[in-house]
Amino acid sequence: MHPPPVRPSAAAVRRVFVPRAFVPLLLCCALLFGTAACGGDSDASPSATSSAERQKFAKTRFVANAGLAAGATYQWIVKPYRDGRFKSGADGRRFALVKAGLAGAFTYNRLKAALRNAKGDPTLAKAVAPLAAGVEALKDLPSKLRKGDSTEAVVGSFDGAINSVKDAGRSAGAEVKDKVPSAGELAKG
């Protein structure tokens, strides 16, 4: 048969079981104090990260809005003007002028948004600050385009504003490329 089980001495029990009882307690304390220590650092980290992220997103939004404005200006204002579609008696003149008027309103809207976006990045804000008055001057020009009034001057104003915004973006490290908006985006403004 089997011999009776041997019982460990009281000293042996203390050596083996006492440290095992403290392990969960030590782990809980380490987690509790470790979490508290990390919590203090988390207050400083998000503000630094979110500030950098805000600047990055400001440039990204600026480039997107300015790119849409540039694409609309070229596609529906500058290109049709160069093709002679705004001239009196040209085939589809009325339709081309209406699209140009919509594109002008869209361009004004996107440029205003781009200027607001630029405020999130100090370098970009400095670069585009002088352009605010030029963009604001575009406000009444879409109606002139729709009517066919002073098309050469109006087209020149839009083209000049877009080129200024592109130059300012380039100087601040935010390269703007033309992105032609869809007809739905154009209609929404």
Rank of each mutant, 00 (worst) to 15 (best):
E53G: 06
A69E: 05
R94N: 07
S88M: 15
Y74T: 12
T73A: 15
A58I: 04
R146C: 02
A90I: 07
D83A: 15
G156K: 02
A113T: 07
F57M: 15
G120A: 07
A66W: 12
G71C: 04
I77C: 13
K56V: 04
G120K: 08
E53W: 07
A132D: 09
A96C: 11
D121F: 00
S150H: 08
P130F: 01
A133L: 11
G120R: 03
I77A: 11
T107G: 01
E136D: 05
P122Y: 03
D121S: 07
A96D: 14
A90V: 03
V135L: 03
V98F: 10
Y74F: 14
G120N: 05
K79W: 01
T123I: 04
V128I: 09
G84F: 15
A132Q: 13
R94A: 14
R116D: 14
V78E: 05
F62W: 02
T123G: 13
G84S: 14
F95C: 03
F86L: 12
G92A: 10
K126M: 09
S88Y: 15
V63G: 11
R85W: 12
L111F: 04
Q55G: 06
A127S: 13
K87R: 15
D159H: 02
D140L: 08
N65S: 15
A118E: 04
Y108C: 00
Q75H: 06
S143A: 10
N117G: 07
F86S: 11
S88G: 15
G134Y: 03
R85I: 10
A137S: 09
A125S: 03
L102D: 11
A127Y: 11
G148A: 12
A105F: 08
Y81H: 15
S88W: 15
N117L: 02
R82T: 12
T151H: 09
Q55R: 11
G92S: 06
K119I: 08
K59A: 04
P122K: 05
V135F: 03
G92F: 08
L141A: 02
A70S: 13
K59V: 03
R61M: 04
G104S: 06
W76A: 14
A52T: 10
E53N: 13
T60F: 08
W76C: 07
A127G: 11
S157P: 06
R93M: 11
F158N: 01
G156Q: 01
K126G: 03
A118L: 02
K147G: 09
F158T: 03
V98H: 06
A103G: 00
D83P: 07
D83W: 12
P80F: 10
T123M: 04
D140Q: 09
K87H: 13
F95A: 14
A127M: 08
Y74S: 13
A96M: 12
N117M: 06
R116H: 12
A153P: 13
F106L: 09
T60V: 11
W76S: 14
G84K: 14
N65T: 09
R54Y: 04
T123N: 09
N109S: 11
E53H: 08
D91H: 08
S157A: 15
V63Y: 11
A133I: 10
R85F: 14
W76D: 13
E53Y: 07
D140V: 10
A52R: 06
A72Y: 02
L145G: 00
R110Y: 06
R93S: 09
G101Y: 05
G104I: 04
P80V: 07
A58M: 05
S150G: 05
A153M: 14
E136K: 00
L97A: 13
A52E: 07
R146D: 05
F86P: 11
A72K: 01
S157Y: 10
